[in-house]
């Protein structure tokens, strides 16, 4: 699919590379993230990668007065996307995170998946996850994809979730970096929250107290 570029309000453009969570699409997101980070477009304030898109936030004063506004930046991006960018993408680090699988929702998750708690723990901890992007809270990493067998829906009502809690939502998993309301199903917790970057990989190591 050819990337589509659209306006996100009057001072940001989003480049959409696809509409599904997919490692090859995300690799392209990260390649372009590093391209525009290494060779920033004029007036760039922020580059925000997501599952299948990259958003560039501009200083509206700069792009409007000197570069024909967002329309001008859009055609500039099209030119840059047409050029292949072959620089090496920094390889994501592998974080091994000790996890105490004693979360308040572990029993309910096991029940709704028709599995035993031990099976949920085994399935969650045997896979290496990919960090797609950070959002929601400072340092919150959206990781996936979890095994189909432990796909669960979000809670109906958000609860207070503690810093270090590890949760599931849909086919994603994540660690709450700070105490916050949230709707994820909490299956475990950790006292080791690394500084994540998009593109990192994560494995959970089951531990006991």
């Amino acid at each position: 699919m050819n990337p589509q570029i659209y306006e996100l309000g009057d001072s940001a453009l989003t480049i959409e590379f696809g509409n599904e969570i997919n490692d090859s699409v995300h690799e392209e997101v990260m390649r372009r993230f590093y391209q525009f980070q290494s060779f920033p477009l004029p007036g760039t304030l922020d580059l925000i990668p997501a599952y299948a898109s990259l958003t560039i936030v501009f200083d509206l004063g700069v792009v409007a007065s000197r570069f024909q506004g967002l329309a001008g930046m859009k055609s500039l991006i099209e030119t840059k996307l047409a050029e292949s960018f072959s620089a090496v993408i920094p390889e994501g680090r592998l974080h091994e995170i000790p996890c105490l699988y004693e979360g308040p929702d572990l029993v309910a998750v096991a029940k709704s998946c028709g599995l035993s708690e031990t099976e949920v723990i085994q399935i969650h901890s045997e896979k290496i996850y990919h960090v797609y992007f950070l959002g929601f809270l400072p340092g919150f990493a959206y990781m996936g994809l979890t095994d189909e067998r432990i796909t669960v829906s979000r809670k109906e009502k958000p609860m207070t979730i503690q810093a270090g809690d590890i949760g599931l939502a849909g086919n994603q998993t994540g660690i709450y970096p700070s105490t916050s309301p949230g709707g994820w199903q909490i299956i475990g917790r950790t006292n080791s929250i690394p500084h994540f970057r998009a593109g990192d990989r994560v494995r959970f190591i089951p531990v006991t107290t």
Partner: peptide, 11 residues
């Protein structure tokens, strides 16, 4: 449904 993506002030 849509995938999570960036938002800005004013969205």
């Amino acid at each position: 449904t849509m995938l999570s993506t960036a938002v800005t002030a004013g969205t």
